[in-house]
């Protein structure tokens, strides 16, 4: 699935990384607990979260994720946007809540485990 499709499915706003919207991603995970993301995530390329602090960006960076979706209308700080830009990440913001956002992507064909 292209990141641009994620944006459309979630009626999301692009905060940064517009130039990477054509990138293909194959899996996603949703969590507000970064410890769990670090523990259980394998090759997920997209992180959906309602947590807003710079550690979200760093966690995604450590996991080689390419796109972060902030749910429930959460807005990242300037510092977070700067960090994301440094790492060539896409940040999307959606008004949808976590459950609905994950559901839309899942129904849209974005799986939970990586397709090699």
């Amino acid at each position: 699935m292209k990141i641009s499709v994620i944006k459309d499915l979630l009626d999301a706003e692009v905060v940064c990384g517009e130039e990477f919207l054509d990138h293909e991603v194959h899996s996603a995970c949703g969590s507000d607990m970064m410890s769990d993301v670090l523990a259980y995530v394998k090759d997920q390329a997209v992180l959906l979260t309602g947590l807003v602090n710079p550690q979200v960006i760093r966690t995604a960076e450590m996991m080689d994720m390419v796109c972060i979706v902030f749910v429930r209308s959460k807005t990242p700080s300037e510092e977070m946007i700067r960090l994301a830009k440094e790492s060539d990440m896409v940040i999307l913001c959606t008004k949808k809540r976590m459950y609905e956002a994950c559901g839309k992507l899942y129904l849209g064909g974005l799986g939970v485990s990586a397709v090699k």
């Binding site: 970064m34 410890s35 769990d36």
Partner: peptide, 23 residues
Amino acid sequence: EGYSTAPDNVRSLGFGAGMGLPN
């Protein structure tokens, strides 16, 4: 896994789930 002595404010930041050392 799950054992943590981190204060509650750390959990609100997304950490302190007792996964650090096991990870």
